[in-house]
Design a protein around this nucleic acid. Structure first.
Length: 420
DNA sequence: TAGGCCATCTGGTCCT
DNA sequence: AGGACCAGATGGCCTA
């Protein structure tokens, strides 16, 4: 903005009566405009701003690694050497002393103005709004606060990301190769809570397909495929009826490493009560496999043991909405969980525009809903196509922890994740 | 190459 | 006044 423009705007504001301090004279406004122009010479926004976003100064070595500055804003002075950790966010040691000196100097100048100026002519100087000069010290102080705020913000976001990482490890998608995005992690966590709650509320052995469908609800197609891939659902003809198994890729073998559950269609295989968690995973937690599906078998056991506290509001609308619904899991379990159940935000069992009744009750975006409901990847679709109504049995390995222990583990993970 | 995702900076707002 | 939180802007990386 040019000086003329600045003066024009200042005068215009004065004429409009907006943001005008009583007693402010045109000369004061001009002085203010000049001071503004001083600031304008080092804008705080835009491509020329010394505070311009860091994108130009950062690079990402890998997607999961934190960024390191590759350049340095000109206004920050010395370029950081290799390995320096955000040294450019520091302020020179003598900055504060210089500021104090500047403050004293400013106070003297202000006193002189009130006394009639350094000439001592005794004539009162202009009164009214007197804009403080933008000294170097003040400018440095502004930058210091900005830098400190940036650091805090950066740390805050790092904490948020750590919490999200913890949440990624808690949800049933321990992919070693593909990291869930933030939004998908939150969606999957929501679905996971919901699915587990449904298991508890139902008080019976869960259906694999419904469980996975609940997990994948509202997820993007790639994420849904990933989740299904982690479960590695596959429909394999085995005798007269299809056979469905769930396994975990990347494990040494299905049986030797932790595998909390196995889904089979074999009649008479062990139900939830025999589910288990054998502890060792062979995959570091940093790789997302430290604690696999910690609660599923636990919930199976609990569901078999305890009766649900209350009945579900609606069998059709007990599932999460496709995206952003206000529903909470239908669960209130002996003080372990105390999750409120809010009513559906939309009429239950509504129909979509083409008249198809929505199975999931509160979907607003049916395209997403269909995608999600039918998602779970090609494997899941194959499974569903084979026989979506086959009462798949669930064979669970021996539980290493008690159901209560595993339930508490899940709670701790979620609480820790959200409290970080 | 477009789009998704991400990290970071930034200024505004609210709270203590 | 200072910190936390938030959302917008920006640019880099990655993938289809």
């Amino acid at each position: 903005m040019s000086l003329q423009e600045m003066v024009f705007l200042s005068v215009s504001a004065a004429l409009d009566g907006s943001s005008v301090t009583p007693g402010l004279k045109a000369s004061d406004m001009l002085t203010s405009a000049l001071a503004e122009r001083t600031l304008e010479s080092t804008p705080t926004r835009g491509p020329d701003s010394p505070f311009r976003p860091s994108g130009a100064h950062c690079k990402v070595s890998t997607k999961s690694q934190s960024r390191e500055p590759v350049g340095r804003p000109e206004w920050l002075g010395h370029a950081p050497g290799p390995g320096r950790d955000r040294q450019h966010d520091r302020v020179p040691d003598g900055a504060r002393e210089a500021e104090e000196e500047e403050e004293e100097q400013e106070q003297e100048e202000e006193q002189e103005e009130e006394d009639g100026g350094p000439e001592g002519d005794g004539l009162p100087r202009r009164r009214g709004l007197r804009r403080r000069r933008v000294t170097q010290a003040r400018w440095d102080r502004v930058r210091l606060r900005r830098i400190e705020a940036n650091t805090r913000e950066r740390n805050r976001m790092h904490g948020l990301n750590h919490a999200l990482d913890a949440l990624r490890r808690a949800v049933p998608c321990p992919s070693r190769t593909q990291k869930l995005s933030k939004i998908e992690t939150l969606r999957l966590a929501r679905n996971y809570i919901w699915a587990l709650s449904e298991v508890l509320s139902a008080g019976k052995r869960p259906d694999l397909l419904a469980f996975v469908q609940t997990l994948c609800r509202g997820l993007s197609q790639p994420t849904a495929s990933l989740v299904a891939g982690c479960l590695q659902l596959s429909a394999r003809p085995s005798g007269p009826e299809p056979r469905v198994e769930a396994a975990f890729p990347g494990r040494a073998t299905f049986d030797t490493v932790y595998t909390p559950y196995r889904f089979r269609h074999d009649a008479g295989t062990g139900p939830c009560a025999s589910g288990g968690h054998e502890g060792g995973s062979g995959v570091s937690s940093a790789e997302g496999g430290g604690r696999p599906f910690p609660a599923y078998s636990a919930f199976c056991g609990l569901a078999a043991t305890y009766q649900p506290f209350y009945e579900r509001a609606s069998p059709e609308c007990s599932s999460p909405t496709c995206d952003g619904g206000a529903l909470s899991p239908p669960l209130h379990y002996h003080g372990i969980f105390s999750l409120k159940h809010e009513g559906p935000s939309e009429p239950e069992g509504h129909s979509d525009p083409d008249g198809t009744r929505c199975r999931f009750g509160t979907c607003r975006r049916f395209g997403t809903c269909r995608c999600a409901a039918a998602s779970g990847g090609a494997a899941l679709r194959r499974c569903a196509a084979a026989d979506a109504h086959v009462p798949y049995d669930v064979q669970l390995r021996e539980q290493f922890l008690t159901a209560q222990d595993q339930l508490n583990i899940v709670q701790d993970q979620f609480y820790t994740a959200f409290q970080q």
